[in-house]
């Protein structure tokens, strides 16, 4: 997992729980003296341990923490990569451009970013069907990212996770619908 993800997790933990909490999490779940550099790769298990520890601290299930982190992650990525996000005029354009634009940009910046396979299709004016596949099975993080993106574009959405890798599916299927409240 790239250091940038750890950096944003740190931002979230410091913002929500304070610096002491982050130091304590690092002490217990990362090698001694660990610093996270955005472009470097770190073991996935380190991120999962940290996320689990956040869940334990907040007494939340891991799934909720991962989803909440996904939500926070979007804003962190926007702050760091404004120019990429500004290319998309709408939420739909951004979601439909994940594979062809965003992942292309990520590949320019990072060596071996191990990106998930994402394909999207617009099934109606208000609905996008997304397929997600990754050995990391971070579909809940993807869901959180989508909610984060919807907040950024100030549109309300609902997501139905109609099939999931955690339940044995080959890939996750997410139906993203824009609500008109």
């Amino acid at each position: 997992m790239k250091g940038i993800i750890f950096n944003i997790l740190e931002d979230m933990v410091v913002e929500k729980l304070g610096m002491a909490a982050w130091n304590s999490l690092l002490e217990k779940n990362a090698p001694q003296g660990r610093v996270y550099v955005s472009a470097k790769n770190y073991d996935d298990s380190e991120l999962f341990s940290l996320a689990q520890a956040v869940g334990d601290t907040l007494q939340l299930p891991l799934a909720d923490v991962v989803k909440a982190f996904g939500h926070y992650l979007f804003q962190g990525l926007v702050e760091r990569h404004q120019s990429v996000v500004q290319r998309f005029a709408s939420f739909d354009a951004l979601v439909l451009g994940i594979h062809d634009v965003i992942h292309v940009e990520v590949n320019k910046l990072y060596v071996d970013p191990s990106l998930p396979t994402i394909s999207c299709e617009k099934t109606s004016d208000n609905t996008i069907k997304m397929f997600y596949h990754s050995p990391r099975q971070l579909c809940l993080c993807a869901e959180g990212l989508l909610y984060g993106a919807a907040d950024y574009y100030k549109i309300p959405i609902t997501i139905q996770h109609t099939q999931c890798m955690h339940l044995g599916a080959e890939q996750c299927e997410l139906i993203i619908e824009q609500r008109h409240d």
């Binding site: 955005s38 472009a39 760091r80």
Partner: peptide
């Protein structure tokens, strides 16, 4: 890191 990323992007392109 932003400077580094800009350089990396240019190098890639």
């Amino acid at each position: 890191e932003q400077l580094l990323e800009d350089s990396t992007r240019q190098l890639y392109e």
